[in-house]
Computed example of a mutant assay.
Amino acid sequence: MSPKKNDDRLTEYRGRRDAGRTPEPVPGEGPLPRGDDDTFVVQEHHASSLHWDLRFERDGVLVSWAVPKGLPWSPETNHLAVHTEDHPLEYATFEGEIPKDEYGGGKVIIWDRGTYETEKWDDREVKVVVHGSRVSGRYVLFRTRGDDWMIHRMDPPADPDAEPLPESLPPMRPVRRSRLPRDRDGWAFEFAWGGRRLLAYVEGGRARFTDGTGRAVDGPARAGTRLGAELGARPAVLDGELAVVEGRETYLICDVPHLDGRPLLDVPYRQRRERLDALGLSGALWQTAPWFPGDGGAVRDAAAAQGLPGVLAKRLDSPYRPGEESDAWRFVPV
C-alpha cells in the first residue's frame, strides 16, 4: 500500500469503469487534488453481496477497504476488511445505482461520513481515530495476507449497554382455545398461516435461522442474504412463519424480540409490532404480517374465507416469553 506516483493512483479504478455507463465519478488523468487527509466515509454497498466500503482520504485519493460485516462495534470481535483499489476523492459524496452489468453493480448509500486523525499508517497497519455521526472511536486495520486485512475497535464498545444477538431463542407459543377473547379491546389478532415457525437472526447483512425448538435450520431459499441486505447494519431477531401465500413460499414476520442491540422481551406486544412495522420489511421472499387490534371476529371470518387454519389472538400488553406456552397468546381455529 505504498504511495504510487500521482499519475497512476487511479489507473486501476478507471480501468474497471466505463464513464459512459456508470454514474460513479470517473475523473480524467492528471494531477490529484490536494486535501487535508482527514475525510472518511462508509458506504453501504448492495452489490452481489452486501458489504460496507470504508474509505480514508490519503495523498489525493480515497484508500478503500470492503468490510463484509461492517465496522465492529466492540473490541471483542474483529471483522474482515478487504483492501480494494484507490477511489477518487469525489467518491466521498457518491450515492446512486451502479448498473448491474457494471463492476460493483448495485445501490450505494452513504452510511456514515466525517473526519479522522491518523495515528499510524504503513503497508501493514493503519491506526486511526474516526469522528462520524454513527461511528466514532479508535480503530486499527492490520494486514493478514495479500489484500486481506482485519479491522479492530480499540476503544470500549460504542454502546456499552448493547447486547449481542442470542445464539438461539425458542419462540413463545400460543395455547389453543375454541373462542375469541371477550375483552377484544385488550387484544390484537393475526392470521395463523399454517406454516413452519422460524426465527431469523440478522446481523452484518446476513441472516441465520432456528426452528420452533430453537435448533439451527436452513432458512428460506435465497432469503438469508437478501433479508440481511434489507436490514443493513441493524441487528435483529425476527419471529415469523414460513408459509405458502398466493402460490409462493413466503417468510411472514410477526414479531421482533431483539433490535439494535436491545432485547425487547419485556416490551409490550403493541410496541414490538409498531417497531417491526417501522422497519418496513417487504420483499419478494418475506413480508411483515398484518395485525388487527380490536375486531377478532372480522379477522376470523377473513381467515376462513382464505382457507387458513385460524387466527392468533395476542394481548396488547403481553411480553415475549421465549419457549413458553402462554395464555396471553391464543390460537383460535376457524
Score class of each variant (00 low, 15 high):
322 P>V: 06
4 K>V: 00
154 M>E: 15
168 S>C: 07
312 L>K: 03
148 D>C: 09
227 L>G: 00
2 S>T: 15
73 W>D: 15
100 K>D: 12
274 E>I: 09
296 G>V: 08
79 H>D: 01
184 R>L: 08
19 A>P: 03
124 R>L: 08
251 Y>M: 03
327 D>I: 06
192 A>G: 04
134 R>S: 11
133 S>L: 14
56 F>I: 10
2 S>Y: 07
86 D>C: 13
116 Y>I: 08
212 G>W: 09
279 L>G: 03
243 A>Q: 01
101 D>C: 08
328 A>G: 08
135 V>F: 08
299 V>F: 05
240 G>D: 00
204 G>C: 04
300 R>P: 00
19 A>C: 08
320 Y>C: 02
205 G>N: 05
245 V>C: 01
271 Q>E: 15
221 A>P: 05
284 A>H: 11
161 D>A: 14
168 S>W: 02
5 K>N: 11
13 Y>S: 00
167 E>S: 14
136 S>Q: 14
270 R>W: 10
231 L>H: 03
268 P>C: 12
83 H>A: 13
7 D>W: 15
191 F>N: 01
3 P>L: 08
254 C>Q: 06
238 L>H: 00
305 A>M: 10
315 R>D: 00
47 A>W: 00
3 P>F: 09
96 G>S: 11
200 A>S: 12
8 D>E: 15
202 V>R: 08
106 G>D: 06
65 W>T: 02
2 S>V: 14
248 R>H: 11
46 H>N: 02
120 K>D: 08
52 W>Q: 01
66 A>C: 10
179 R>A: 14
173 R>C: 02
5 K>D: 14
110 I>M: 07
111 W>S: 14
118 T>K: 07
247 G>M: 09
25 P>A: 09
24 E>Y: 06
50 L>A: 08
217 V>C: 10
261 G>P: 05
85 E>I: 05
195 G>R: 03
116 Y>E: 02
320 Y>D: 03
108 V>C: 04
